[in-house]
Amino acid sequence: MVKSAVTLTRKILHGIEDGVLVSLISSLLLISFTQIVMRNAGIAGFTWAEDASRVIVLWLAMFGAMRASRLRNHIAIDLMTHYGQPWLKRVLHMVVCLFSATVCGFAAWHCLEFVIGEYEFPTEAFLGIPVWACEAIMPFALAVIGMRFLHQVFLPPLDAEIDTEQTADTPAQ
């Protein structure tokens, strides 16, 4: 019962994450397309569009990184894990995930301090939206990514899953 509730909650949160990502891409395309059409029609365009586009790109990058870490599809430099015994791959996978989680945790902490500093000295980004609200995605996303890396410490490395499938399918000689 608890496992199904956790699975359902996870699916809902992942759906929200993907929905926000799609909304951000759609918003960026709509703003950019509208600006192009308005400028070609001789209309000046929206004064806030460039600032909004920059913020949307930041949010896209952070949500994209969150999605990539969720799917274990992020950029990884793991040469050592490709050339070793399964136990070594497992150990290196755990070390890399712990290190990545630690780095993300420190980055999230410092981003949070940065956002708090921006909150204390309020400035406007565009359309009355404060700068700190635009930057708040950074500590949130880095914390989520860090927690996902921490969770992946307990998951087998992707190569180990592939190796076990290949050895199971290989006929005995």
Rank of each mutant, 00 (worst) to 15 (best):
D78C: 05
I75Y: 11
A108Y: 02
W109I: 08
L98C: 12
E50I: 15
R67D: 10
A108R: 01
C134N: 05
V95Y: 03
E124I: 00
L92D: 10
A136Q: 02
A68C: 08
G64N: 07
A68I: 07
A101E: 02
A68D: 06
R148K: 12
E113A: 14
A108S: 12
P122S: 05
P122I: 02
L112A: 08
A101C: 11
A108I: 06
S53C: 11
A65L: 12
C111M: 12
L142K: 06
P86A: 04
C104S: 08
Q85C: 11
A68S: 10
F126T: 04
L92R: 12
I116G: 01
I129E: 00
A101I: 08
E50S: 14
G128H: 02
I75L: 14
C104P: 01
S100L: 11
A101N: 05
F126P: 03
E135N: 11
G128S: 08
V95D: 01
R67H: 15
P139M: 06
R67T: 15
P122G: 01
M94R: 13
W109N: 07
G117C: 10
A143R: 03
A101K: 03
E113R: 15
P139Q: 04
L58W: 04
E113P: 08
V96N: 01
F99N: 11
S53L: 12
W87T: 14
V55M: 06
T47V: 13
G42I: 10
L98M: 12
F63V: 11
C134L: 04
F99L: 15
S100R: 06
M138A: 06
M66P: 03
L79R: 13
A125V: 07
M62G: 03
M147F: 14
V55D: 01
A52L: 08
Y119S: 01
F99H: 12
R72E: 14
F99S: 14
R54F: 14
G128F: 02
T81D: 07
F140T: 15
T102V: 10
A68V: 07
V115L: 09
D51K: 13
G45N: 04
W109E: 06
E118W: 07
N73W: 12
V96H: 03
C134F: 03
G64W: 05
L71G: 01
R67F: 13
S53P: 06
